[in-house]
């Protein structure tokens, strides 16, 4: 079986403008190799600064790797494409558009007329359980509802691959569990390939068929854990089964050393534009300026 997504020897370097003088280069991903199977639900966990978001940007085509190749269906990724969709942690809905018009934005320019687009938006809002909310503006929706709209928006133009960057991290625990179950249902119904980035081990084990564990910076693939929780249907509280706990512990042990290593090295998040404000030493004059501003 050929891989749906294939990362080959991918390296990503940023020049960081943290200190004065020549920009430092920062190796975020190094010789990264990973294959994602078609129709698979893969979750990715890793310590802060291990390049999870960078990885997603590369897959989405929002950034180009410094070295190596990112292949989707055997073709190199050169930019964003309608075969892939991204769901962001902060929803990223367009606040001046209603829920329905947010969902249909990816359909504009595809030859569908306004009526057809609206019908399709309604269909996908139904899928995420938001029928009746199509004329609401994002500010009239709760966090969970916003993320549902964002999911509907990414599904509406029917991509093969769904890329999700900690999509449920900003939600409360109850809403998160609810959306996790809905995501699994949608995944089963639609058969998409899902790459789901998270910092929650429970979430990774609960959702993923496989969990990819990244090393601390520079990010490499440390291990892939196959998750087999058995028959899910009928199991009311899967998170407290022995199987779940075993898998969870396995991922935790793999991650634990890396988190420790990352903390000791003081690695923090690097922003998408390549700046890493947290990388500035605490007594650096730039930092004082920043806080004064």
């Amino acid at each position: 079986m050929t891989a749906k997504i294939s990362l080959r020897h991918v390296g990503q370097e940023f020049s960081v403008r943290a200190s004065k003088g020549a920009p430092n280069s920062l190796l975020v991903l190094d010789d990264f190799n990973l294959d994602v199977r078609p129709g698979e639900f893969l979750t990715i966990v890793g310590p802060s600064g291990s390049g999870k978001t960078t990885l997603l940007d590369l897959l989405a085509g929002l950034a180009k790797p410094t070295s190596g190749q990112v292949l989707v269906d055997g073709h190199e990724v050169t930019g964003p494409g309608q075969d892939r969709a991204v769901v962001f942690q902060q929803y990223a809905l367009f606040p001046w558009r209603t829920a329905a018009r947010n969902v249909s934005i990816g359909l504009e320019g595809t030859g569908l007329n306004r009526r057809q687009r609206a019908a399709k938006a309604g269909e996908f809002l139904d899928l995420v359980g938001l029928s009746g909310f199509s004329e609401r503006y994002p500010h009239e929706l709760s966090g969970g509802m916003k993320q549902r709209v964002a999911i509907a928006r990414s599904l509406a133009y029917e991509p093969d691959i769904l890329l999700m960057d900690e999509p449920f991290a900003a939600l409360d625990a109850q809403t998160r569990e609810q959306l996790q179950d809905e995501l699994l249902r949608i995944w089963r119904e639609t058969g998409k390939t899902v790459v789901f980035i998270t910092h929650g081990i429970d979430e990774a084990v609960y959702l993923g068929q496989r969990v990819a564990v990244l090393s601390s910076r520079p990010g490499r693939l440390k291990a892939i854990v196959d998750i087999d929780l058995g028959e899910r249907e009928g199991e009311s509280d899967i998170r407290s089964t022995t199987r779940f706990v075993e898998h969870r512990h396995k991922v935790w042990s793999l991650l634990h050393d890396e988190v420790q290593a990352a903390q000791n090295a003081g690695h923090r998040k690097v922003l998408p534009d390549g700046s890493a404000p947290d990388e500035v030493p605490a007594n650096h004059p730039l930092l004082a300026q920043r806080s004064a501003a």
């Binding site: 989405a60 085509g61 929002l62 964003p80 494409g81 309608q82 892939r84 969709a85 991204v86 962001f88 902060q90 990223a92 367009f94 606040p95 001046w96 934005i105 990816g106 504009e108 320019g109 928006r153 133009y157 998408p272 534009d273």
Partner: peptide
Amino acid sequence: PLLVRAARSLGLRSPALFRKVILPS
């Protein structure tokens, strides 16, 4: 910038990006 990222990931190119995201915002 998040909205711009989202719009680009939705496949919007410069002219459409400008008209549908940057201008309204």
